[in-house]
Amino acid sequence: MRRTLALLLLALPASAQDRRSGFEDMARETQAMQRDDMQNPGMLWVAEGEERFNRDCTSCHTEASMRGVAARYPAWDEATGAPIDLAGRISACVERHQRATPPARESQALLALTAYVAHQSRGLPISRPTDPRLAPALAQGRALYGERRGQLDLSCVQCHDDNAGRRLAGSVIPQAHPTGYPLYRLEWQGLGSLQRRLRGCMTGVRSEPFAYGAAEYVALEIFLNDRAAGMAIETPAVRP
């Protein structure tokens, strides 16, 4: 019986067997910091985002209507005919509907609003990107994930699939599930986006990162969400 079970488990794709959030590999103190909203530094951005939302966004949106939104992004943007991530959507909303200058990528204002909106989906499962219009970007994301790059000639797969759980110097290599963005990194001493994190890996292998907002990052995010579909959103997560 046990043997049959083991065989059944082996037959499942690796992703269904033992996907783990980077949260599980953190020190207990860092986990406690994320769990406790009074200690979680990311909640400062969420609070700022809430203020901005209540000031600038409530003529169209309600807090309740934001629940589940982050779980469905990146999504298809009719206006540009391209996929758009959550920060891009918020930025576009400011530009199109408030007729204001859109906040820059990685600016305090955009991080705060994105963290606030994503926080409304905390605990909800990441949706699988099933919109057929996202299929080309999903395929592009998968290809980018498998592509070797940089002077060190490494792909995402080689660390985050083939060697996840092993140690790169002192750090456990995570499986790269984007469950908690934007998130607070102790290394950054601040909140940052998935794009910032992806850039970190790209410069780590000594490759030229794509510019903030590039379609390649959105494609990678769609692929990563497909890979992490069903895992719970943690925003704002804390990571070492």
């Binding site: 592509e147 070797r148 790059r149 940089g150 002077q151 060190l152 000639d153 410069t203 000594r206 490759s207 030229e208």
Partner: peptide, 14 residues
């Protein structure tokens, strides 16, 4: 045979 090497390292061995 390398792809997207950062400008600072382009053409240089490790």
């Amino acid at each position: 045979g390398l792809h997207r090497v950062a400008p600072a390292q382009r053409g240089r061995p490790i």
